[in-house]
């Protein structure tokens, strides 16, 4: 069942200038995005830097103001209400949490781990001191850290451990959705494996959903059930993981997929030739995939669980369906 819906979400930033610092133009960071988030699923949000993927995450959790469109939580309109202290929005605040890319700057250096992880609990639950401590220890165990950690400070931990503390803190308010913004891109391969394992384990245990924002397609492929590919603030393609990886339709998706380095040194030349062919097609064909203003078209249903932003007037392209 879906609990969070984004309808035509828009986040625009003004560009100010001139003598009176008036608004000269707008940056369309997110420009009309629809998304439905269901329980227990992982949604991958992929795009290059500047595509607006982080802005969507921030808009959901209230770190960026929403310019247009709607965010509904369990049927209640919660657009721009993430920081509201009114009780009707308390559930929304409690149930959506976030894990940040930079684990160092997202943990308060002056606080002990106990206080960092207990903070969401203090906001939303009435625990006694003992309950709180037990709960913190339990959370630390879930992310593979032991009890001694509770009286230590963030700088005493390694990058991977800090990221796991971030995960523990996000889980502390027993949320329904965790927005993970590039949670492993600063980590080494073997440490990344550890964090991803813990994230999966927590999902099984709590049945929560993830909005997994990343530029690393192999990580997203490993974690996500559903994937949305973003470009220029809009979705160019959305669908189940299998559909996106096995039958990509939009030229931008194909280009992105072909650019991932393959761990297959024996077929390197073939892969390179393929990538060049797609790149060439992208240069020649991209005009058919974007409107005159360079805007991505609206998503069209292409297949079951598969939506592609194709030109609505260009039906031939659609039936051909790429290669």
């Amino acid at each position: 069942m879906s609990f969070l819906e984004l309808k035509d979400l828009k986040v625009h930033f003004p560009i100010r200038g001139g003598i009176f610092n008036t608004i000269q133009d707008w940056v369309y960071a997110v420009d009309g995005v629809d998304m439905i988030i269901e329980e227990g699923k992982t949604y991958g949000l992929v795009g290059e830097s500047g595509s607006g993927k982080t802005t969507i995450g921030k808009a959901i959790i209230g770190l960026e103001g929403v310019t247009g469109g709607q965010v509904t939580y369990n049927g209640v309109d919660v657009t721009n209400k993430a920081r509201s202290r009114r009780s009707e929005y308390a559930d929304y605040n409690k149930d959506i949490q976030m894990i940040f890319q930079d684990s160092t700057s997202s943990l308060n250096p002056k606080k002990r781990i106990k206080d960092i992880i207990a903070e969401p609990m203090r906001n939303y639950f009435n625990y006694t001191n003992d309950q709180e401590k037990n709960e913190v220890i339990r959370l630390l165990e879930i992310v593979g850290l032991n009890e001694e950690a509770i009286y230590r400070y963030p700088h005493e931990f390694s990058g991977g451990q800090r990221q796991r503390l971030g995960v523990a803190r996000a889980v502390a308010s027993s949320p329904k959705l965790i927005i993970a913004d590039e949670p492993t891109s600063a980590l080494d391969l073997s440490v990344q494996a550890q964090v991803l394992n813990f994230m999966r384990r927590i999902q099984e245990e709590y049945g929560l959903s993830y909005l997994f924002i990343s530029h690393d397609l192999s990580v997203v492929k490993y974690m996500a059930d559903d994937i949305a590919i973003m470009h220029r603030g809009r979705f160019v393609e959305r669908g189940s993981k299998e559909k996106i990886f096995n039958n990509p339709q939009h030229i931008y998706t194909r280009r992105l997929l072909s650019a991932i380095p393959q761990i297959d040194p024996l077929n390197r030349e073939q892969h390179k030739a393929e990538r060049r062919a797609v790149e060439k097609e992208y240069q020649e064909q991209q005009i058919h995939y974007y409107s005159e203003k360079g805007r991505v078209y609206d998503l069209q249903t292409f297949d079951d669980q598969h939506w592609v932003a194709l030109n609505p007037n260009d039906k031939i392209k659609q039936s051909e369906g790429g290669n």
Binding site: L189, Q192, L196, N197, S218, K221
Partner: peptide, 23 residues
Amino acid sequence: LLNSIPQELEGEEVAELHVIQGT
């Protein structure tokens, strides 16, 4: 190290990634 790369084989149940113990 090669074992800890996230990669999924077609149709297989997603396994836990290999983690190198310690630091």
